[in-house]
Amino acid sequence: MTKRAFKNWCFFSIFTNLLAISFAIAYLAIPIYNIAWDIFGVVLILTWIADFAIILMNEKYLNKADDKGKHLNRVVYIYLVYIIVATLCLMGKGLFTTGTAVPSTFSQTISYILIAIGIFGVFLFGLFLTFLDLINFEERGAWKFE
């Protein structure tokens, strides 16, 4: 992969993450079925693919012997662990909602917090990682493109 292709993928990833976050806010605000939610479904999957691709590209092209590269690599590690924790939060949210007979302010707050960690957190972190990649793109030695 060329440096230019990586950069273009970063822009695509930023676009999908922003789109997914916007859709997610709209979904929470208007919880009635709309054809847009089918599009949101596709956007969700595309965003995860874009974020995983960024992670894999970081893995392949980061120069971990370099200080900057090492730093970015640690961010990738944290992101991966965060995705697992966030997904477990989504599971918890689903089970919590399933078992709630009388929703209270407390239970709804918990639900929103779990969605914030599980959906918004993942995409915001994805945005953050992509921005970091772009900011450090011209750093000498941080990358090993052909």
């Binding site: 859709f23 919880p31 089918d38 949101f40 596709v42 969700l44 689903g94 969605i115 959906i119």
Partner: peptide, 9 residues
């Protein structure tokens, strides 16, 4: 519906 799967209603 995919969003419902991940975010619930």
């Amino acid at each position: 519906n995919i969003p419902e799967y991940f975010m619930g209603t």
